[in-house]
Design a binder for these strands. Sequence first.
DNA 1: CCATCTTGTAGGCCAATTCCTACAAATCGC
DNA 2: GCGATTTGTAGGAATTGGCCTACAAGATGG
Lengths: 209, 209
Amino acid sequence: MVRVGLKQTLAEELSDVDFGEASSSPETIQRLHAQTWDVIVLDIQMPGPSGLEVLKEVKQNFPRLPVLVLSSVPEDQLAARVLKAGAAGYLNKQSAPEELVKAVRKVMAGGHYVSAALGEKLAADLGRSRNRAHHETLSDREYQVFRLMLGGKSLKETAAELSVSPKTVSTYRTRIFEKLRVKNDIELARYAMEHGLGEFRPPNPPPQG
Amino acid sequence: MVRVGLKQTLAEELSDVDFGEASSSPETIQRLHAQTWDVIVLDIQMPGPSGLEVLKEVKQNFPRLPVLVLSSVPEDQLAARVLKAGAAGYLNKQSAPEELVKAVRKVMAGGHYVSAALGEKLAADLGRSRNRAHHETLSDREYQVFRLMLGGKSLKETAAELSVSPKTVSTYRTRIFEKLRVKNDIELARYAMEHGLGEFRPPNPPPQG
DNA sequence: CCATCTTGTAGGCCAATTCCTACAAATCGC
DNA sequence: GCGATTTGTAGGAATTGGCCTACAAGATGG
């Protein structure tokens, strides 16, 4: 349903380009081996990988193929992850169709595309960034606090448990938030879930099942 | 971007029908007074300031105008609410275009439309009405706040988004906590994860594609 | 129909948390 | 080896959020 719209929009503006569609991940990979594509427009649903997986797999097999990611979530957490995973661009579905066209042109020409707003955000983030998982940069003490937080402990409770001042724990919390690039408990929980940490390991069998 | 696709899809199959578009809620209401429509296809973006509002407003002013709701969240929670608010049908954006056409035809003819799967689910829910999941007891407003909270919004931000006092949101938060039997944001997030709600739907796609 | 419960809204007051700052010891980077 | 950064610790000021209370409109249940 969504794909129809995209195709329509793109076909109107980029009449010199051929379009194909694929839905599932295996199907996409399959086709990539069969024929040569110039660009992929990947529609990522939700922060839950699945789409990210596809992206990663595509990039692993075809590192030079530009992938433009579309998503309906407000460009935030996901965008950075997607770009770090090698996407050539990130676009919100709320964007105007013209922006899509522009983005596709840009990435097909080998460039990158992000909205101005997102660009700034990323630039700000670029202060420093390795490719270790963020939580691996936590110090021992920070990690300890992190776990207690995931256990639903309040700042005060945590402080009591560690026999330090609540102020101290507060500082840890701030540092943890910085390192994990989150801004509150909810995002912390999401981080934990996405990384299968603490009490947030999903009930289903793990990825490598 | 999405609307283009819908229009396209519908125009192909229902050539005897006229189509218009509107984006904002006020715009929609406005137009309804100006001209007569046979049906509304309403795209609800959950995290935003509630398409539910729009739906309710439309139904209040034009109770007999059928509204088919489209949404991208695969949550039957939303579906139930939307139908209770008077929608004539609910359809997931992932659905095939043909289903959209079928649904539009059905509701235009005065009927109701839900997917088979959702129908079963709803029917099943009717049976065990007393042991509903906790989150099903949330009021619309509470649910809305719940979603914003899951989106990582602070109390203040949420209040701003809903144009109410932070105090009000605080009250909602308390009621949500009560109803879900949790005591803080972390547990709220865990609840969401365990029930596959909001941004916390588990990363692993269903076992059978 | 009428009492009761629920829902949407919010104020006051106080406890919990964040923000900014600080500083010594440990560690890193070159 | 030595300056730069990280880590463990915490205080005071400023905010935010939690708890209790309230109240009107709407829904519910006898």
